[in-house]
Amino acid sequence: MTAEQIIFLIVGAVTLIAGLMVVTVRNLVHAALWLVAALFGVAIVYTLLNAGFIAVVQVVVYIGAIAILFIFAVMLTRRQAADTGASVNKNWWAGALMAAATFAGLAFLLQGWSGFSKTASAIPLGFDAVNQLGDALTSPAGYVLPFEVASVLLLAALVGAVYLAFNKK
């Protein structure tokens, strides 16, 4: 077993455990902090996949912005979010069954696929993924249209969030 595989197993286990804590702990501030741990694990997985830029974006956008936004929202709605009543609804067992069935179905489908245990070919010498990504995002032959649509979506979300959360009184 190589060092890379050992790192993957440790990080994968930590990520899955942190994910389980996110959906099971009662205190929502703790759930948001466990989400930060899970997101860090995913960032390390990106690094193992040689996608350094995506890993950095994961830390900056997900942990720096989204997780902090969650903590703010939990604190702003704290009185009701406080630990009264059950943290899961009465049909939680159906949800657990559904999640287990989804995992079993995905695993079954994947292990029947021919490319399942493929190993990665080495990155070609002098290949600059960040350069290529920038080219792909801005060239008309690449993905400039989805890129611009995403910016319009972000603007719409910005205006919508301000409108929804604005206190009219």
């Binding site: 159906a94 999640a99 995905l106 399942f116």
Partner: peptide
């Protein structure tokens, strides 16, 4: 690392998230 490890990790994380959304 074979591709299967990443896919199983992603499937597990997805299922955990699905449980959170449903429950």
């Amino acid at each position: 690392i074979p591709l299967s490890w990443y896919l199983i990790l992603a499937a597990g994380l997805f299922s955990i998230g699905l449980f959170g959304v449903l429950a």
